[in-house]
Amino acid sequence: MIKNFFPNKILSLNNRLIFVLIIMMIFIVIIGFIYALFISPPDYVQGDSVRIMYVHVPSSFISLGCFAFIGLASISNLIFKTKFVSLMAKSLAPVGLVFTLVSVVTGSLWGKPTWGIWWAWDARLTSMIILLCFYIAYILTWKLIDSFERANKISSFIGIIGLFNLPVIKYSVDWWSTLHQPSSITLTSAPTIHYTMLIPLFIMLFGMAIYSLIIFLMRYKTEIMKFKLNKKKNYK
C-alpha cells in the first residue's frame, strides 16, 4: 500500500484512476447536496441554517486531518529523512488551507443567524485561525525558500509546532467555556445529531474527502516531477 506512494510508482499512476475518482466525487457530492438541501429535515431550533453544517463540519474534519498528516510527515521527515513524505505533505497543504478557509467562512455565515454575530474570539474559533496561520506559514516556506533542503527542514519544524494546536482545537470546547457548541460526534458516546441529518453529513464528508484525494494525487505527481527535474538540472 505505502509502496504505491513511492516516487517511481506515483509517476506511473494511471490518469484513469483520477478520472474514475472525479466521476465518483461528482456523483457523491450531487447525492450529498440533494440529501442535504431537500431530503434532510430542518432543525428544531436553527431551521434551515442547519444545512450549512453539511459543508462546515466535513471541511473542518478534512482541514484537521490534513494538518495531522503534515505534522506526522514532518516528524517522520526529521527522523528518517524521507523526502517523498515531505513532498506528500507539501502537496496536501493547499487542500487543507482551502478547507480551513471554507470551514471558517461557512462557520461565520452560520454564526450570524444563530448566535447573532459573525465572529467571536472564543477558544475554538481562535485556534482555528491559528491553524490557518500555520497552513499559510507552511506553504510560504516552501514557496519562498529556494533550496529544497532548507525549505524541507524549516517547513517540518512548522508542521511539528502546528501539531500542538490540533488537540487544542479539538478539545477547546470541552476545556473552556466557548460560544461554539461542544462536539456532537464523539468516539465515546452516541452522536447527538438525528440520523436523518447524519446521513447527508457523512455523504458530504465522503465526497469532499475524495475531492481532497484527487487534488492531492494531482499535486503530488507534479511535485515529484518537479523534484526530479531539479535534481537533473543540478547534476549538469
Binding site: 429535515p41 430542518p42 432543525d43 428544531y44 431550533v45 436553527q46 442547519v50 453544517m53 444563530t114 448566535w115 447573532g116 454575530i117 467571536a120 460560544l179 457548541q181 461542544p182 462536539s183 456532537s184 447527538t192 445529531i193 438525528h194 436523518t196 441529518m197
Partner: peptide, 18 residues
C-alpha cells in the same frame, strides 16, 4: 449591551423534538 444565543450540540427535526 449585547446578547448572543448559544446553540447546544443537539440537532434534530422538529417532529422528533415535539
Amino acid at each position: 449591551d449585547k446578547i448572543l444565543a448559544k446553540h447546544d450540540e443537539n440537532y434534530m427535526p422538529p417532529e422528533v423534538s415535539q
